[in-house]
Structure formats: structure tokens, C-alpha cells
């Protein structure tokens, strides 16, 4: 198994913003649309290399999404960059009506997913997006957790037909995957195998789950599976069923517990009549005051400490 270094710090927005140049090189139909956050979204290199293919509509997210829809109607593949809350809330109706209704090849790239906006506060957090974007027909919802996956995910967006929403954290992530990692939209990645319990997670929570799983193995000898559910919608049903075989599922999401990954997992368990221990961890259904993201993850119980505790509690229940 790969040796993980939990002190690593990779920043997905830097990686994904820079990688837009590769995406742009591969397909001349690729264009970028910003709303005054090309710096924040780290895609300025694309705008410098392909000035004709880069649009910046100013601080106007509704127009940003509608304008991108117009470009897509004419055969372009727009990558729309902003903070997740501004895409999925300020421009929610534009995402639904202008992009998804017409099933256009628009890629909505939302950084600042979950509470990762930290001290920027609730205006810049996005703990509703999986519920909002996931309930829009045609729209799929993705979330990368590591640098290689982020790039492969972006590669996959070149071949996928239809609208895509990608939420990504601004908190640092670690390296999870190797270069030979095979990424497929809709197919969950098993980061670590295990038979005594399973974490189902995405984005920032993958590293926390992995750390928790390794600690549990060391401390009490139980083997815990870590499933990276990078495609939140459409969720990988088989992976959920496999996780349930362990009898203990902990879902960890940087999202409101309501309407996030936990709900997507729970509906499969219910529909499949699967009985298992189950804990749904994420943001409580209340607004938090401004704080650094790791503090909040700890407070809300879905950092490595919280995930470790939750799983051990489940195992001890049996």
C-alpha cells in the first residue's frame, strides 16, 4: 500500500486552475469564463495563453453562467470558475434553466466547497451545493480529493457529454493516488480496503478518513475501508452496497448533513433494504461563526479525530 504523508499540502485550486492550460491545449473548443475571480481560481495562465478563449464578465455570476450557456449552444465547452456558493446559489436558476435544461457541455468549477472558506465566513461557504446541484436534472456532481485525481477528473470532463458541477476544497489535500490511477466518473475509488467498517467520503474528508482508518488499525487491529465517492451524483451504488457488507458505515461530508453525500448513501441503503450501523457526519443544520476550517472540522466531528471516534463507537455497538 502507498505510504501516505499527512503533512503534505497540495492545493487543488492551484492544480486545477493551472491544468486548464492542458485542457485548453487538448481541445480548441475549450473556453474559460470568469466573474472577476480568475486570480482566486488560479486560471490566469489560461487567460494569458488563450486570451481569445477567456471571458471575464465582471462580478456578475448570473451573466457568467448564462453567457457560458450561450457559448455552449454554439459548440464551445466552457469551464466556468467561481466560488461554489456563487455558482450554485447566486446563479442557481441559470445553472438549471440555461445550462441543465438544454443539457449543455458547461463545466461549473466551484472552489471554496464546504466550510473550506474558513475565516471568510458563511457567505463564502458552500454547504448546500450537493443538494442544490444534485437535484438539477442532467447535472452531475463531482469532488476531487487529490492532485492526480483532480487532473484525471478534468480530463474526463473533456469526454463527458452534459453539464458537470465540480466542487473543490481550498483546504490543503494530500497525495492519495499514483500516476497509474484510473479515474472514471460514477465509479468510486477504494483508497483502502477493509472488512470491519467503511468510511464513505469525498474531497477533504478522504484524507481525514484515511488517517482515522490507519489509526484504528494500529490501535485496535480493525481494518477499515475508505471509499472515495468522488462522484456524488450519480452515486456508485455498488460501492455503497460493498461498504454496507462491513456492517459499519460512517459518511463524512464537508456539507450540510441534509442533502449531502450521507443522504445519497442512505437512500441506497433504504432502497436495497440493507441493515447496517450508519453515522452521517457533516455540518449541522445551523450557521457557524467564522473560524478556520480545521477548527470547524474538529468542532463538527469530521476531521481525523472525529471520524476515528465515530467509527470506534459504531464498532463497539456490535
Amino acid at each position: 500500500m502507498k505510504i501516505f504523508n499527512f503533512n503534505e499540502k497540495y492545493f487543488l485550486r492551484n492544480i486545477m486552475g493551472a491544468y486548464m492550460v492542458n485542457i485548453g491545449n487538448q481541445n480548441e473548443k475549450v473556453v474559460v469564463v470568469n466573474a472577476d475571480l480568475s486570480g482566486t481560481c488560479r486560471n490566469k495562465t489560461f487567460t494569458e495563453i488563450f486570451p481569445e478563449r477567456a471571458f471575464n464578465v465582471g462580478i456578475a455570476e448570473q451573466n457568467m453562467v448564462s453567457f457560458a450557456a450561450g457559448l455552449a449552444h454554439e459548440g464551445f465547452i466552457p469551464y466556468v470558475f467561481s466560488m461554489a456558493p456563487f455558482i450554485c446559489m447566486r446563479a442557481c436558476e441559470q445553472c438549471r434553466t440555461d445550462v441543465a435544461y438544454a443539457n449543455l457541455n458547461v463545466r461549473l468549477m466551484g472552489t471554496y466547497a464546504g466550510l473550506s472558506g474558513g475565516i471568510s465566513g458563511a457567505t463564502h461557504w458552500s454547504v448546500e451545493d450537493c443538494a442544490i446541484m444534485g437535484s438539477i436534472a442532467n447535472m452531475i456532481v463531482l469532488e476531487p480529493c487529490d492532485p492526480i485525481q483532480a487532473k484525471k477528473m478534468m480530463e474526463a470532463t473533456l469526454k463527458y457529454n452534459g453539464p458537470i458541477y465540480i466542487r473543490s476544497t481550498v483546504e490543503p489535500v494530500i497525495s492519495i493516488y499514483n500516476n497509474d490511477y484510473e479515474y472514471k466518473i460514477g465509479k468510486a475509488s477504494i483508497v483502502k480496503d477493509g472488512v470491519d467498517g467503511a468510511y464513505i467520503c469525498s474531497g477533504i474528508t478522504v484524507k481525514y478518513a484515511l488517517e482515522a482508518a490507519l489509526r484504528i488499525e494500529k490501535k485496535i487491529g480493525k481494518s477499515i475501508c475508505v471509499i472515495d465517492m468522488h462522484t456524488i451524483k450519480p452515486i456508485d451504488k455498488e460501492a455503497v452496497i460493498k461498504a454496507a457488507k462491513t456492517g459499519n458505515i460512517v459518511v463524512a461530508q464537508d456539507h450540510n448533513k441534509i442533502g449531502g453525500l450521507g443522504y445519497y448513501v442512505a437512500i441506497i441503503l433504504a432502497e436495497e433494504k440493507i441493515s447496517t450501523n450508519f453515522i452521517n457526519l457533516g455540518v449541522e443544520d445551523k450557521f457557524e461563526a467564522m473560524a478556520h476550517a480545521p477548527y470547524l472540522y474538529n468542532k463538527l466531528g469530521y476531521d481525523a479525530d472525529g471520524l476515528e471516534k465515530a467509527m470506534i463507537n459504531l464498532i463497539n455497538k456490535n
Binding site: N63, S66, F67, G70, H73, E74, T97
Partner: peptide, 25 residues
């Protein structure tokens, strides 16, 4: 129907994107 519409304030910005796309093409 080139663009499905109904909710107001949508068709115009979409049309702007189309016009920009024509120029780019």
C-alpha cells in the same frame, strides 16, 4: 427553439454568449 426560455432575464445573457461564440468562430 434555439434556447428554451420562460423565466425572464435569461435569454438575453444567453444570446450574448452566442454572439460572442459566433465571433470566436
Amino acid at each position: 427553439v434555439e434556447v428554451s426560455t420562460g423565466s425572464l432575464g435569461h435569454g438575453f445573457p444567453v444570446a450574448c454568449g452566442m454572439a460572442a461564440a459566433l465571433k470566436l468562430k
